[in-house]
């Protein structure tokens, strides 16, 4: 059975506060903060994109795992902001971590859940014996149309997970993974379009809640586990409100989701969101803890995982840069004009 042998994360140091965006559009910052359960979001530096975030996370994952990187057999990078339309992000990652060229690599896109899809593919390849290790990465520098509600949440960050099958290397066994998928156009971005479009307040029920709930219930049915069996739960977090609501609906407490609930502080990192949440949860987990993770990607689908932490987590603990530490170190706030410049939203240059 495959499991996680290492993980790494990256969050840009730049932040913009809700107040800074709200004042430009004449909106009530306090109402937005309360409504979204979010106070600020991460912003990529001018020299950061989904590939550089993937690389930083991947390098930390390789270091944490302690594996011989030449034995990595596959790298899948999930993102909805791949820097090129044609030219893989995954190739940049494999060269930058000095992996072998004898490796499978591809980019994935499934809105905010392409990273967990990469983990599932890696699990299949590892469990089948085709490869020794595989890496799934979720990374994004997501787009929010200026003036749109998404502008308050669309942020940047990513996480990488290395999947292997050597019992002595696994820090967390993946007991089971299931998915729930349907053709639900709740949110999309057409080829060449700079910004995504969404169905506003009507995206929640048919999109996020339907898929997250069904995938999680399917996981319960397949494993016989129930919310009380898990020490922690992580959900995709497009804002700070939805994961709290869906956790409550499914029977999880606020305490169970607290370690992995990062959106209130860094916004929605899209493909990175549930994976960063899992990374932050693993940072504080103890051997024997069970963790439930359900991602969500618009379009729409959810991947759900039941994970059990092993004794090996403690021996690798000193090799990890904690997600909360990454989020809180060297934070730099930018104003709205700098944000527009750094996101290349200013025309005429």
């Amino acid at each position: 059975m495959s499991g996680i042998v290492g993980y790494g994360a990256h969050v840009p140091i730049y932040r913009i506060k809700v107040e800074e965006i709200a004042k430009v559009w004449g909106e009530d910052a306090n109402a937005i903060k309360a409504g979204l359960n979010l106070k600020e979001k991460s912003v990529p530096g001018r020299d950061e994109n989904a590939a550089t975030i993937a690389v930083e996370a991947a390098r930390r994952a390789v270091f944490h795992s302690g594996i011989d990187v030449k034995k990595l057999g596959a790298v899948y990078v999930g993102s909805e902001s791949h820097p090129y339309a044609v030219k893989p992000t995954a190739t940049v990652v494999i060269e930058s971590i000095m992996a072998s060229n004898n490796i499978m690599a591809a980019d994935l896109e499934f809105a905010c859940k392409a990273g967990t899809a990469g983990v599932q593919i890696s699990m299949g390849l590892v469990d089948s014996g085709m490869i020794e290790y595989g890496m799934g990465i979720g990374t994004d520098t997501s787009q929010g149309r200026p003036g749109d509600a998404l502008e308050y949440t669309a942020s940047a960050g990513g996480a990488a997970f290395i999947i292997g099958r050597e019992k002595k290397e696994i820090i967390a066994n993946i007991i089971k993974t299931v998915s729930y998928t349907s053709d639900t156009p709740d949110f999309w971005r057409r080829e060449g379009a700079a910004f995504p479009t969404h169905s506003g307040r009507f995206t929640g029920e048919p999109g996020y809640f339907r898929h997250t709930t069904n995938a999680t219930k399917l996981l319960f049915e397949n494993t016989g586990l129930k919310p009380a069996d898990f020490a922690y739960a992580v959900f995709h977090q497009p804002n700070g409100k939805f994961p709290v609501m869906v956790a409550k609906q499914l029977g999880f407490s606020d305490a169970q989701i607290a370690p992995g609930l990062l959106t209130p502080l860094i916004g929605n990192t899209y493909s990175g969101a549930s994976m960063l949440g899992l990374a932050a949860t693993l940072d504080i987990s103890k051997p024997g803890d069970k963790i439930m993770v359900t991602s969500f990607g618009s379009g729409a689908g959810s991947d759900s995982f039941a994970i059990e932490v092993t004794d090996n987590i403690d021996s690798k603990r000193s090799r990890i840069t904690g997600v909360r530490k990454l989020m809180e170190t060297n934070k730099k706030y930018v104003d709205y004009a700098t944000y527009l410049k750094d996101k290349d939203f200013i025309k005429g240059r």
Binding site: G45, D47, E48, N49, T52, V55, E56, R59, S96
Partner: peptide, 10 residues
Amino acid sequence: TKVRAVFRTM
């Protein structure tokens, strides 16, 4: 000042 290398676009 001590520094470390990071990966960025140039």
